[in-house]
Design a protein around this nucleic acid. Structure first.
Lengths: 269, 269
DNA sequence: CCCGAAGTGTGCACTTAGTGCCTTATCGTA
DNA sequence: TACGATAAGGCACTAAGTGCACACTTCGGG
């Protein structure tokens, strides 16, 4: 659009301009047909600058997933080990949903794009699989290895050898069988989240899908109840942590609750 | 390796040679560091020939997923509507596992690659998500749209308008709630499959993981039982199909079973 | 007031994935 | 032996992504 003026104000948020340029151009012209040159020119910057902000062209469409994943991981790390794990990851899924709800217009546009551009679809699937992996990890299993998306370094730490696969600790005490449950539970929560999200997006991003998410999560939790019930007996996340609280008999309940919250690392917000 | 000779025998299976060249070169040199030129030269063909066989460099690493997905879809299409749907998709997952088990060495090499090359990991995640979508579709919901991976043509057929989202057929008769269950069930089955598969791959691809798959599927099915129980009352896959079988009172049970199998289009194999 | 340091934007050259178009070789078949 | 189909090769081209050097702005400190 406008070529060279207004370079003084709003010097920040070149990212944002690049993102919206990428989305709108891709919506009109098609993603593959839109070159990085055109996107950069539309945002009023040079081609090289585009690649300073985004590693690939696909990244420009989903600039928020990285930060959102960090928020989710932080939330999981800070969650109290006393709370039911399924509930915690359900709430974590809510964080992801919130990211979409924050900007419904962009979310719907992105959805339109992902529906017809295979490369973007794969990109988004990969993003959701990272959330799923974070959930699995939180539930106690390291699903296969690295934390993040694996910057290609990170060889498996020698010496930390997997226990022999055959004779497990016991039949369902917390080894192989527990991991299976963790992965399935994480997948179920992610699937429920995706269902609610896509249903909302198909509807044009109107209304608030948060209620639908919680009800979907309720249903999933109910189905996975038998597994969750066995979690205290089997090896669960944080099962080796102990909380010791010293207080006085005169302390009110809310004070005790607060102490527990502090001790278990829940965020003070 | 050998440069120009032996162009007469084994003229077929250039694909196979390209694939193994791509895998072994990527394992030694690294995937990103290996150029298509090198792969083609190692397989004794020209660069252009590589792209005749594979659309992208990543495709050369996973040449079987397309065909396997077709087999899975064919299996699902041919499955008798009288059988429990969860069992059917569990068996379909077995087809996928079989593909890996067929060639354990290659499978383990591929796993090694996917562990350290993000691009390949995304590729495989996308592949499994296609299976998941096929499962969801079979269970009755079309999760969001197209059948295959969408060759970028395929605009939404005008006129086939979605029914209004708000007033569904009824509260849980087979609309929104049923779709949620379908997606979660598909995700759970895929997660269980992936768990067994990765566990087997981590163990070096030794032994037969089929038994572990069925036991994992048993567990998943057990957890999803309450959902599956309601399937007859709600709108299930094939619920609008009717099978009429005329036979004689003297017919043995196995004969009747065979007739049903034929009538419902199960493969005769 | 001047001077580095750090961050951000630019230009340029380069590698490589992927495509389109046309030519060539090979093979089965009439 | 000729012919048509299919696989392969050659060649030129577009565009993504990278490395490098350079310019400009903004601080903060002497």
């Amino acid at each position: 659009m406008d070529d060279g003026r207004d370079r003084m104000p709003a010097r920040r948020d070149v990212r944002r301009e690049l993102m919206s340029a990428a989305i709108s151009l891709s919506l009109t012209t098609g993603f593959d047909e839109t070159t990085v040159d055109e996107i950069a020119r539309a945002a009023g910057v040079a081609r090289r600058t585009f690649f300073r902000h985004f590693r690939t062209k696909e990244d420009a469409i989903f600039p928020d997933h990285d930060e959102c994943l960090e928020r989710v991981v932080a939330f999981l790390d800070a969650a109290s080990p006393l709370r039911p794990p399924l509930l915690v990851i359900a709430e974590a899924a809510g964080i992801v949903l919130d990211m979409y709800v924050e900007d419904p217009d962009t979310a719907v546009k992105r959805y339109e794009l992902t529906r017809r551009v295979p490369a973007l679809r794969e990109r988004e699937i990969a993003a959701t699989s990272r959330y799923q992996r974070a959930f699995t990890r939180y539930l106690g299993g390291r699903s296969d290895e690295a934390t993040g998306d694996g910057a290609a370094g990170e060889a498996a730490p020698a010496g930390a050898k997997e226990p022999p696969v055959g004779p497990e600790v016991g039949p369902g005490v917390g080894g192989e069988a527990a991991r299976l449950r963790h992965e399935v539970a994480a997948a179920a929560v992610v699937a429920a989240h995706n269902h609610v999200l896509r249903s909302w997006l198909r509807g044009g991003g109107r209304g608030d899908p948060r209620a639908r998410l919680t009800s979907a999560m309720d249903e999933v939790t109910r189905a996975l109840q038998p597994w969750a019930d066995g979690r205290d007996a089997s090896g669960d996340a944080h099962s080796d942590e102990v909380v010791v609280l010293v207080t006085t008999r005169r302390a009110p309940l809310w004070k005790i609750a607060e102490e527990i919250r502090n001790a278990t690392g829940e965020p003070p917000s």
